[in-house]
């Protein structure tokens, strides 16, 4: 065994994630079909379906984060930054979660200029914001606002809800150096770590992307902001 070429763990992980995502795809599509075909669902059935969908999406997000973080640690995370319409990014996020939004009776308000385009890695930013939206959907009472604005030549994307807001210890995590983040608290730490890493990887004219967590905003709950230079 010793003279064999060592296995490239990144490839093994990528291959395992590939297989799992194929299964997840089938699972999500089946949920979609079930949800479509049974029009007279009881409230309990609708909630069960929404939960199934929510957990499958979480699993997918975790897989993507795991693979991206592993690749980033090995300096193998490829970035493809191109110009994209932010409207496309938001529409895709909503489409991914339409079943959950519908079943939970959530209202999503969008405040974005249709013509707004920005430079970003669509896959990575899309996955990151989807994780934030999934959290907002879970903790929001009934409303979420996704808004965008340009401040000092930087794009700000806000996702805010009318839930109870972020716990203070989570807000404090934002100022900690990356290496001091503690993952024992569960996936929240991993999600934030991923979000910070993806934001930081977007660079332009000596500026780096960043994230902000606050409470309050126009809905009084949590406010997540992604800033891209």
């Amino acid at each position: 065994m010793s003279d064999e070429t060592p296995i490239d763990f990144s490839s093994v992980l990528a291959s395992a994630v590939h297989d799992m995502k194929n299964s997840l795809c089938m699972l999500i599509q089946s949920i979609d079909q079930l949800s479509q075909s049974s029009s007279h669902q009881s409230k309990e059935q609708a909630e069960e379906l929404a939960r199934l969908h929510y957990e499958a999406s979480r699993l997918n997000t975790n897989l993507m984060q795991l693979l991206s973080l592993y690749r980033a640690e090995k300096h193998q995370l490829p970035m493809t930054i191109e110009e994209h319409y932010i409207d496309d990014l938001i529409e895709e996020m909503i489409a991914k979660n339409e079943i959950y939004i519908e079943k939970r009776g959530l209202t999503i308000e969008i405040d974005n200029d249709e013509a707004l385009a920005w430079y970003l890695d669509m896959d990575l930013v899309g996955n990151m914001l989807n994780d934030i939206l999934i959290n907002a959907m879970r903790y929001s009472k009934d409303t979420i606002v996704i808004s965008t604005e340009i401040i000092n030549d930087e794009l700000h994307i806000h996702i805010q809800d009318n839930g109870d807001g972020y716990p203070q210890e989570m807000i404090d995590l934002i100022d900690l150096p990356m290496q001091d983040l503690n993952f024992d608290t569960g996936r929240t730490g991993l999600g934030l770590f991923f979000a910070r890493m993806i934001a930081k990887a977007h660079k332009n004219q000596n500026k780096e992307g960043r994230i902000m967590l606050e409470n309050g905003g126009k809905l009084g709950g949590s406010v997540f902001t992604l800033i891209l230079p």
């Binding site: 194929n22 999500i28 479509q36 499958a56 895709e92 489409a95 079943i99």
Partner: peptide, 16 residues
């Protein structure tokens, strides 16, 4: 189109 995707995402992509 990246897996997993659902009907809504496929439709959005195709529309675009």
């Amino acid at each position: 189109l990246t897996k997993p995707f659902n009907r809504q995402i496929l439709r959005k992509k195709l529309d675009r």
